[in-house]
Design a protein around this nucleic acid. Structure first.
Lengths: 221, 221
DNA sequence: CCGCCCCTTATTGCATACAAAAATAGAGTT
DNA sequence: AACTCTATTTTTGTATGCAATAAGGGGCGG
């Protein structure tokens, strides 16, 4: 179907492919992933496919049982809560570090970003969920921590975990404006070099956001 | 040599084996891991070995380059700093959660654990590094957070990262007694149900401990 | 009609085989 | 002696093959 990315290995191709399929919901939670059928479907042999499974296992996107094959991982409400707690801990810490480590240029850019968000909100501009200003803000703060491993964790594993848990970033009406003002508080604390305040503000923001997500999850089920 | 664990798969066996070898320093950082020679050495074929590499890659114990094989991961001082920061964020958060979620029995057990540590310290008992009371304390607090995913992260990935970075837990003379008193503060805060205090106390403890480790690393090089 | 056991089939786990890429070594030239 | 280009060899990446384990289905008995 799609050409397997030229430079990379087949394993990379397969991982990417299955990852997307799971996140998009094409492979629903609990679905059996047969090696043979998936291999023929993707046009590869079972060898790279099995190696891909191992990596996806590490990302907790698939679960394997000995002699019983691989399945798309299922996630309980408990797991969602746990992942959100971890995000709260890591990302509020990232805000602290951002306040310590961001350059003056970055601080200015962060303030501009928040201002831009306010603008969008005022104009009622709708942007697509995947590259929303909400995402931009959080990504920017995380990068500002200058901790690459932390960034990897937040935008690697946890990002996927939240996506697979059907995370919808601040999709709730009325939450948007409030969220932006919470961002403003965080940004100001970072820009004025107050790590402690920045951490607290981010934690408040995340806790509210996460509470919303958990409520949404509860009412949906 | 050693019999491959009966119940598990060969991949599990190989992962376990290589993991240990790396952590023990038998496979030094940067060492080339040839598939053929390792396979014959471990008495398996290349298939399970390659799958094992993928998992070890996820644990950041080995690095692979396309068409250039696998090597034991090398870790810079920067990475050590980053990992310790992450640990600070997660484990102080764990202390907060432990204060919220531990049962009365667990709280009592935690206080007893600290008391026991004090006893050992007073008697000058030397215990082996791998199952030290220091480890016990941290493990107990982490488990007390009642967040399995958090426990997995701290005692999965980060644990290995620190081990491979030649972490020696509070091996410094004089640090031991101080560390125990810091533990006592954390334990008291948890036992009396003060999440905020517990988090702060754990953060202080970890920051001091990590500073020691970073200094040790600096002077060693 | 339902449950259980055995047999067939399908699938997984591991080993081997083959092709392509990279490392290595050597001869020739400067 | 160093440098480079090439030929050989080694190593990685992928495909296929085989054995063992688990899933599925049909017949038998209750």
């Amino acid at each position: 179907m799609t050409d397997r990315m030229e430079s990379g290995s087949l394993v990379d191709f397969v991982v990417d492919r299955i990852e997307k399929a799971i996140l998009l919901g094409d492979y629903p939670a609990g679905m059996k992933l047969s090696e043979q059928s998936l291999a023929t479907e993707l046009g590869v042999s079972r060898s790279p496919l099995r190696e891909a499974f191992r990596r996806l296992e590490g990302k907790k996107l698939v679960v394997r049982r000995h002699n019983a094959g691989a399945r798309v991982a299922e996630h309980s409400a408990k797991e969602l809560r746990e992942v959100l707690e971890i995000r709260e801990a890591l990302e509020s810490y990232a805000a602290r570090k951002a306040a310590e480590n961001m350059s003056e240029e970055e601080k200015a850019a962060l303030l501009r970003l928040v201002e831009q968000q306010r603008e969008y909100e005022r104009l009622g501009t709708t942007v697509d969920r995947n590259q929303s200003p909400e995402q931009d803000f959080h990504l920017f703060v995380i990068r500002g921590s200058k901790n690459d491993r932390l960034s990897d964790m937040l935008y690697g594993d946890l990002y996927y975990a939240l996506r697979v848990l059907r995370y919808r970033s601040s999709a709730h009406a009325g939450r948007s404006r409030l969220a932006i003002e919470e961002h403003a508080v965080v940004a100001t604390a970072i820009a004025t070099g107050q790590p402690e305040v920045a951490e607290q503000a981010m934690r408040v923001h995340l806790r509210r956001s996460h509470e919303n997500m958990l409520n949404a999850e509860r009412t949906r089920n």
